[in-house]
Design a binder for these strands. Structure first.
Length: 550
RNA sequence: GCCCUUGUAGUUUAAUGGAUAAAACAGCUCCCUUCUAAGGAGCGGCUGCGGGUUCGAUUCCUGCCAGGGGCACCA
């Protein structure tokens, strides 16, 4: 990659002047007028070299220019002592050729070649609603797994679902009282009446584990099946295909066994419960087996780590959850470190912010929740309204792709970890910095390419336009952006980049006629094709479909 | 109380310790007999407050202020 060539050139120059430096820092200048890359080495080393940054920069430049690194048109010193690199036209032309050759592989890298990664995300609970919080986990997780996949790793997408536990007992309690209620409503009822009926609900909880009550067993099986089928329908809409499913009903017994085997060593008894004293490690105490002898979420998570590694011998296990469980997870990891040090070492917890409503926190306790489906459906209605004059054939299908794209983009456009105050009118947009904006740019490119094909214009980069556009200068950066997003587990670098790129394409489209009878038409069509591959692959990384018409 | 985390145009958000802090939305003005106007072109900032480190701080450290999350048998 070009960045490596530049780094090496800089490093050679610096060491030729017998100066020591660590990793060379290269960045994209905020303004393309300052070149394609910029480095601050001269400013960093000025003091050591006992020169002013500008003098040092000049000397470094002199050395670099003498050695003529590939693809560099000119090197300049600017500002306080920045060294700016301007790449040559042939570099950009070659990049276009490379994109046309790579096609759907364009953007990939080998950072994780031969590595196995399991990514766990979404994690809804049967018997409860699939709400917009799960949507957030799904959007982030789906994107991260695809980024990891394009980095060369073998990826397993995993979903961990809580099919046992107190929440199930609460839902079954509600259903027993009123069989007409939906499972979501039954759960809310159970939560609201838990304090008054603690004994009864705890008894149901125990019976679910022991499976010795026919009425409860049948209610349980029915509810579990309905929930899971319903979830599958949502995954289909969202474009997620899981490879592995894990359930608390299977992680529970294993986790329980693990904890029991380590009482006295890692865990201890306290008030009838089995706990892990996190205070020794600057954390807090958590209960792993409650005083009824049942495994809590904590014990189940330990069991989960074990099952995961048995089913898929991973090099890295990524777990994506809301940041509300951040402190909790630290305790789990500490306990895991003592039982399975290598597994703990391989586990990476990524947290995303919470989806909250303008009225405050979403709560299935009060029934104050927005389900993922109702949200998507509502957005879909708006999209269909906008499409009423469109002649697209499969409207409902395309409308759904656009609706999901709008929702996912609104989640992925900001750096992970920040909360989203979800306001229907404000949070979702079809214009500007939005999913549909990217999708629309793609359909435009696609139309152009169709027309070029009809008029038999062959792609070529032989005769390029004289003035390079921002578009060429942005396209080649795609793999570098993907690499960074992968290293930092930050899909939003991709959204930011794609939106900037789509803006460049839309400006190009507005001011140039692409399909025309001219010497530069084959080049402009090639450029359009390169853009189409980039935006399509980029949208794929975000888990957003790229319709050809909308 | 302790531990995490966030604070940037009116709003939603960008900015890998760097150059004049960047977009979008909302608002105002233009641009469709052209490859889809979900588009393009044009007009605005004491980065919550105070210290510190640095040649340089939105970014790192620290003290306040304000939000959010977590802290024993829920998940």
């Amino acid at each position: 990659m070009i960045a490596e060539i530049l780094k090496k050139a800089i490093k050679d120059a610096v060491s030729a002047m017998s100066l020591e430096t660590g990793e060379i820092h290269l960045e994209y200048p905020a303004d393309l007028a300052y070149g394609d890359y910029s480095t601050n080495v001269a400013m960093v080393l000025a003091k050591k070299a006992q020169k002013t940054p500008k003098e040092l920069a000049q000397e470094i430049i002199r050395y670099i220019v003498q050695n003529k690194p590939d693809h560099v048109e000119k090197v300049e010193v600017a500002g306080a002592g920045f060294i700016n690199f301007y790449l040559s036209q042939d570099f950009f032309t070659e990049s276009i050729n490379e994109i046309l050759k790579e096609r759907e592989k364009w953007g990939s890298n080998n950072l994780l070649k031969n590595q196995k990664t399991i990514v766990e995300y979404t994690d809804p609970n049967p018997f409860k609603e699939f709400h917009i919080g799960h949507l957030m986990s799904n959007a982030v997780g789906e994107s991260i797994s695809r980024i990891v996949e394009l980095s060369g790793a073998e990826v397993k997408k995993a979903n961990y679902q809580g099919d046992v536990g107190l929440h199930v007992a609460k839902a079954i309690f509600g259903k027993q009282k009123n069989s007409e209620m939906t499972w979501g409503k039954a759960y809310t009822y159970g939560v609201q009446n838990y304090e008054k009926n603690k004994k009864e609900i705890n008894k149901i909880n125990k019976k679910i584990y022991e499976k010795d009550d026919n009425e409860i067993n049948s209610l349980y099986e029915k509810g579990r099946k309905i929930s899971l089928e319903h979830f599958e329908e949502i995954y289909r809409k969202l474009g997620t295909k899981f490879d592995e499913y894990f359930f608390e009903s299977e992680t529970g017994p294993i986790g329980q066994k693990l904890v029991k085997e380590n009482i006295g060593k890692i865990f201890e008894e306290s008030d009838g419960a089995i706990i892990f004293k996190g205070e020794k490690y600057g954390l807090h105490t958590r209960v792993f087996i409650n005083s009824d002898g049942l495994p809590t979420y904590e014990a189940k998570d330990l069991g989960l780590a074990k099952i995961k590694s048995e089913r898929f011998n991973y090099d890295k296990s990524v777990v994506i959850t809301g940041n509300e469980v951040k402190e909790y997870f630290k305790v789990i990891l500490e306990a895991m470190k003592q039982i399975y040090p290598t597994l703990a070492e391989k586990t990476k917890h990524i947290t995303h912010g919470m989806m909250r409503l303008p009225s405050g926190k979403m709560s299935s306790r009060t029934g104050d929740i927005v389900t993922a489906e109702s949200l998507i459906d509502e957005v879909k209605v708006k999209v269909l309204e906008k499409m009423k004059n469109s002649d697209v054939k499969n409207k409902p299908e395309i409308a759904e792709e656009i609706a999901v794209g709008a929702v996912k983009y609104s989640i992925l456009k900001q750096s992970a970890g920040k909360d989203i105050i979800f306001n229907f009118d404000k949070s979702l947009s079809f214009e500007g910095n939005s999913g549909p904006y990217l999708q629309y740019s793609y359909t435009r490119a696609h139309s152009v390419l169709e027309k070029a094909k009809e008029q038999n214009i062959k792609l070529s980069t032989k005769i390029s336009r004289l003035d390079l556009d921002i578009l060429e200068k942005l396209l080649y950066r795609f793999p570098e952006v993907v690499e960074r997003a992968g290293k930092e587990f930050e899909p939003h670098y991709i959204t930011t980049y794609l939106t900037e790129l789509a803006g460049a394409f839309n400006s190009f489209y507005a001011k140039e006629r692409i399909v025309e009878e001219s010497d530069s038409a084959p080049y402009k069509v090639a450029l359009t094709q390169a853009f189409a591959y980039t935006i399509k692959n980029g949208l794929w990384l975000l888990g957003i479909k790229a319709p050809e018409r909308m």
